[in-house]
């Protein structure tokens, strides 16, 4: 049995190296490097594994022009079959992006699953997934950490909840937002780009659709960022403790008890 899977991918700020004052004098966030949203990459991996196992196709979709990372091309390098970009000049809120994506997904046509990540870095969390599922009228599940069974017409997932997890069966098509916690050498770890595909698809055209082409007149803005303030950071003065020295460890225990 084969499945057609659409993966929504995003480029996000890389907050890992954010040290010191986060805002510039203009009150705007200082420029940070950007990266492929790690949870979206996990979702792509999940889709590709299903394709490897069951056959079918993986189509990837994003909104906006690429910044530092061309996430769609990165997906093609890993084995996605097709990529589409929705173009926009505006800095859209999540709901407006969901409207564009929903229209694009309808344009792509029949599909079994729409996957994306629970996006942590910028605080979007599960918002895009829900906004999308609501507009598409699909079943939805968030905080999915694995797909335990996929059969024609339905999917079973393990989902993280407070104090444990639950197993949920959904009808297809469904929107799944993945939040995966990877262990060392976890089989869910995203694959690397493939050298040959990279050479072949470096300049492959990626079809683009504007809102007008998708039949949308322009989605109203419902949420506006009104301001940012830096939060006082707790200054941690780090003391090194020599792991090999018993005296140092004993001194540490005296300090902390």
């Amino acid at each position: 049995m084969s499945y057609h899977i659409i993966v929504v991918v995003r480029e996000v700020w890389d907050t890992r190296d954010l040290v010191g004052e986060p805002l510039g004098l203009d009150g705007v966030l200082k420029p940070l490097p950007r990266r492929f949203d790690p949870e979206d990459l996990n979702s792509l991996e999940q889709a590709l594994q299903i394709k490897d196992r069951e056959g079918g196709s993986v189509t990837v979709l994003s909104v906006g022009q690429p910044g530092e990372v061309d996430v769609l091309r990165e997906c093609l390098y890993r084995g996605a079959d097709e990529a589409f970009r929705v173009t926009t000049d505006e800095d859209l809120d999540t709901g407006a992006r969901a409207a564009l994506l929903a229209a694009a997904i309808r344009r792509i046509g029949a599909h079994d699953l729409v996957l994306l990540g629970v996006s942590v870095p910028e605080g979007e969390n599960s918002l895009l997934a829900g906004e999308l599922a609501g507009r598409l009228g699909h079943a939805q599940l968030t905080y999915v950490d694995s797909l335990t069974e996929l059969v024609p017409g339905q999917v079973t997932c393990r989902r993280e909840i407070e104090m444990g997890s639950e197993f949920v069966r959904l009808p297809l098509p469904a929107v799944l937002a993945l939040g995966v916690y990877l262990l060392k050498d976890d089989p869910r770890t995203p694959r690397a780009a493939k050298a040959m595909l990279k050479l072949k698809l470096k300049k492959a055209p990626i079809p683009e659709w504007s809102a007008a082409e998708l039949g949308l007149a322009g989605e109203p803005r419902r949420m506006r960022l009104a301001g940012l303030t830096a939060l006082p950071q707790r200054n941690v003065e780090t003391h090194d403790v020599d792991a090999g020295s018993e005296a140092a460890l004993a001194a540490l225990l005296r300090d902390i008890r």
Binding site: K184, D185, A192, A193, K194, A195, K198, L199, K202
Partner: peptide, 22 residues
């Protein structure tokens, strides 16, 4: 660019993220 890009990814990433930790 194709040569240098390939050194960066996948070679540089696989070396750093997969091979070195093992």
């Amino acid at each position: 660019e194709a040569n240098l890009d390939m050194l960066s990814d996948p070679i540089g990433t696989i070396a750093a993220q997969r091979i070195a930790p093992r």
